[in-house]
Design a protein around this nucleic acid. Structure first.
Lengths: 353, 353
DNA sequence: CTGAAAGCGCTTACAG
DNA sequence: CTGAAAGCGCTTACAG
């Protein structure tokens, strides 16, 4: 930008006939002692307004050695719509606390050294903190030059003393299955994801624990894994529905909403109605899917916005005691697990007893 | 961050036994005259490496009066998944050109003065340029303090000499309808959006122009508008399908993929198969929807990533002559319209002649 | 109550 | 070939 010369503190000082010290003190509203009389204050204010003065943050940052800036580094953004609420809440929280967000996607950055460079750039820009966000819940190898104060968002670092914020997957899955149990279902299937990712392991655990809680013996027949896509839902769901009538599940918990979408399709092909013949609970509350299915899908909402906000607050060392921070697996690390609320819609029916 | 004292140029200079001038020249690789002999260069490099020296960008920015930073201001992000490719491509383009992106969402910011403040903050941080992004194609009243060099992304400013980058909606709609015409269809319906937004007006125009191009007289009966949602697609699509057999469309172009999703459902309820009994073309190529429908939906892809990249290149005043910039409606303004490619899938069938 | 001065960490004429 | 010095625009002890 051709940078039309903007007025500086000095300009204001000259116009108001005071020193730059005074201008700085007045404009920053410092109150150490009563100091500056109202008349002077007023004069300075007027001069600043007349000159349309705006402080130069760069100069201020250099002097104060802090930049009111946070690096939001994210990975695998491109493939998921979950990025939006996470980033948007993070940005809002930053703004509320007078900070700006540098957003860097590592999607196209291949190789550990390039990753380092990207983080280095942020470091050189004197960011006051880092949030490292993943777009789906996973464990990652933290880039070596990330400071210890970095907050991991929707992921955990395999090593280091970092703070992490993740969804309470296991509890959420248990809650999802409990919705089905409470509706009287006992033959409850689990449409699992074949990928051995954190979420699938944890959700399976939650499924099993809820069953045990209700004294239902998990039936391995009722557990089918396939790809976590609509097509995977069609095939995996189909397998579950093609079980002999006496063992076939009356309800199915799906690893995610996309698989649930496929399961709807599989049910329809077999003339089964949802929720009349089959109750379904999904996971993700995915925009444009869960609520738009016919009937609308009961599912678990991932707390992306809440996690995004908390990450910033943590990075800014604000008070985050409103959530519980547990000790993590690696030395010095700590973890906050956020609840996933049930979103009740119309895909679950009471089982006639 | 407790900012462990990082080493500075001066530290490196002392260790290498040269002046800071020399260190600066060597580390920045300036080549004005051969200057500095290799031995000195080497000494400086080593000292820098040993001290793990990183230049302080803030100091550099202050001195050079430029920040290698761009403000990416966006509105209405929260409700759309289209934000992701736009932002991610913009960030990548910025990185390739040595710039960082400040991302600010205006979603939660109400009132023109708060918007001004948000932009002011960016201005104070000495951003070298602005991109103002909207998440769906619209015309907006530009915030008053945005510099003239601002690039509008996926929207146009109602006034001012700005550059805008938008999708070529009309051409895209015409291309969509041509897919149907080329498959032999003549009774082609348009499932329109009731909202009077830019996209719906332009897509309607494109629909009409393609029909005329093939000497098909547009039939007002075949044009139904409803909400641009799945439900809107069910009802609006249903109305179209309930037309008497001799006038009922054999193909329908939908304002967006969500409506197309509803139309699939309406067709199914009436025992109509897609594309056997009804060909459908959507718009948006919306992730997790278009490709997951049964059968997968033929649709138009919005060039979000391409637009995001171009916006940054324009904001950086790089060469963007690879696209055509037309004169805009307001004085000094200019517009680039990017093509939307057809994504051919399986929802269109040849009409038996 | 107010100002002169130092200094944040760089870059860049300029002089030698 | 190399360095001393000025200066980017602020803030902040410190002195008066």
């Amino acid at each position: 930008m051709p940078a039309i010369r903007r007025s500086t503190l000095k300009d204001v000082a000259e116009r108001a006939n005071v020193s730059v010290t005074t201008v700085s003190v007045v404009l920053n509203g410092r109150q150490d002692g009563i100091r500056v009389p109202d008349a002077t204050r007023e004069r300075v204010r007027r001069a600043a307004a007349e000159l349309d003065y705006r402080p130069n943050q760069t100069a201020r940052n250099l002097r104060q050695r802090s930049s009111r800036t946070i690096g939001f580094v994210s990975d695998e953004v491109t493939t998921t719509p979950f990025a939006v609420p996470m980033l948007s809440a993070a940005q809002q929280a930053a703004a509320e606390n007078g900070h700006l967000l540098f957003v860097v996607n590592l999607d196209h950055v291949v190789g550990a050294d390039l990753q380092r460079d990207a983080i280095d750039t942020l470091l050189q820009h004197q960011v006051t903190g880092f949030v490292f966000a993943c777009m789906y819940h996973q464990e990652i190898e933290p880039p070596a030059n990330l400071p210890d104060s970095t907050v991991f968002l929707n992921c955990r670092a395999r090593s280091g003393p970092f703070r992490s914020i993740i969804p309470a997957e296991m509890a959420a899955a248990a809650a999802a299955v409990r919705v089905l149990l409470d509706a009287g279902h006992r033959r409850i299937g689990y449409l699992d994801d074949t990928d051995a990712i954190v979420a699938s392991k944890l959700r399976l655990k939650g499924y099993l624990s809820a069953l045990r809680e209700y004294d239902v013996t998990p039936d391995p027949l009722l557990r089918v894994a396939s790809q976590a896509t609509v097509l995977g839902g069609v095939t995996g769901g189909g397998a579950l529905l093609d079980l002999p009538a006496d063992v076939r599940p009356t309800a199915i918990f799906c690893f995610n909403d996309r698989m649930a979408m496929g399961l709807y399709r599989a049910a329809r092909h077999r003339g089964l109605s949802v929720p009349g013949d089959l109750s379904i609970v999904g996971f993700d509350d995915q925009e444009y899917i869960a609520s738009e299915l016919d009937p609308p899908l009961t599912t678990m909402r991932l707390p992306h916005a809440e996690m995004g906000r908390l990450a910033i607050e943590a990075a800014l060392d604000l008070d985050t005691e409103y959530v519980e921070w547990k000790r993590g697996r690696t030395k010095g690390s700590t973890v906050a697990m956020l609840d996933c609320p049930v979103v009740e819609r119309e895909s679950v029916a009471q089982l006639p007893s």
